[in-house]
Amino acid sequence: MRNGLRCSNTEGQPDAVLPKRCIIIGYEPPQLYVETVMTPNEIARVQDYLRRTFGNDRITIVPPPKRGAPIEMLIGDEFIGVVHRDEDEGEVSYDLHITILSEDLPPASAVPAGTKGKPTR
């Protein structure tokens, strides 16, 4: 046992070589966050927030068809991304991950001159 680790070397190699198996005694990995299922009330509240924030009543948060499936955000019929509910030390947050496929982007020549690298408002 070294540094709280019980290690075995199945190939009979010296201790200087990394062991094939290690058992960590009395160690529990830290839980960084817990992703939990969103209730229908939370889905409605997040949808309302996104509609007000982006000024778009076509934003829809779609409850998953089965437990564990992603919660999708749509604008009209277009898939935009997924929403996750995270809980860390009792604090709840909602993450929106937006996916943009390169094939959906306009050609580079379609970007107006003078806007490259500048934020839009």
Score class of each variant (00 low, 15 high):
23 I>G: 06
16 A>C: 11
92 V>G: 10
16 A>K: 13
80 I>V: 15
92 V>E: 09
89 E>G: 09
64 P>Q: 09
33 Y>C: 12
54 F>K: 01
38 M>Y: 00
13 Q>H: 15
10 T>E: 11
47 Q>H: 03
55 G>R: 10
62 V>F: 01
73 M>R: 04
118 K>T: 08
112 P>W: 00
81 G>Y: 03
38 M>W: 00
70 P>I: 02
42 E>I: 10
92 V>C: 10
49 Y>K: 04
120 T>P: 07
118 K>S: 15
74 L>N: 07
66 K>A: 14
85 R>H: 07
9 N>S: 03
15 D>H: 11
105 L>I: 10
83 V>G: 00
28 E>K: 15
109 S>F: 08
120 T>Y: 03
31 Q>P: 00
113 A>Q: 12
39 T>G: 04
8 S>G: 11
84 H>E: 14
38 M>T: 01
96 L>V: 05
108 A>Y: 08
86 D>V: 05
16 A>Y: 08
121 R>E: 14
19 P>I: 00
102 S>F: 09
35 E>I: 01
121 R>S: 08
7 C>F: 04
75 I>M: 01
1 M>T: 10
100 I>S: 04
84 H>Q: 08
121 R>A: 12
9 N>Q: 05
84 H>L: 09
68 G>Y: 03
113 A>K: 02
20 K>D: 10
78 E>R: 13
69 A>G: 07
81 G>K: 02
115 T>L: 01
45 R>L: 08
32 L>Y: 14
4 G>Y: 04
99 T>Q: 03
118 K>E: 10
120 T>M: 14
83 V>L: 05
1 M>F: 09
53 T>W: 05
53 T>R: 15
24 I>Y: 08
74 L>K: 08
57 D>A: 14
8 S>E: 12
97 H>Q: 05
95 D>R: 08
82 V>C: 06
82 V>Q: 02
33 Y>N: 12
106 P>I: 11
21 R>S: 15
64 P>R: 05
39 T>K: 03
48 D>F: 07
62 V>R: 11
114 G>Y: 01
99 T>L: 05
5 L>I: 13
108 A>N: 09
57 D>L: 12
91 E>I: 11
89 E>S: 14
69 A>N: 09
46 V>A: 06
10 T>W: 12
98 I>L: 07
120 T>H: 01
119 P>T: 00
36 T>I: 14
78 E>A: 06
7 C>K: 05
87 E>V: 15
27 Y>F: 12
5 L>D: 13
80 I>P: 01
41 N>Q: 15
34 V>R: 11
61 I>A: 05
117 G>E: 02
44 A>F: 04
72 E>I: 07
3 N>A: 09
17 V>K: 08
58 R>A: 12
89 E>N: 15
108 A>G: 08
70 P>G: 04
9 N>F: 11
7 C>Y: 06
118 K>D: 07
83 V>H: 00
5 L>S: 10
98 I>D: 00
56 N>T: 02
18 L>Y: 05
108 A>P: 03
105 L>E: 09
15 D>L: 14
99 T>N: 06
110 A>D: 14
34 V>Y: 08
113 A>G: 09
82 V>G: 03
47 Q>A: 15
94 Y>F: 15
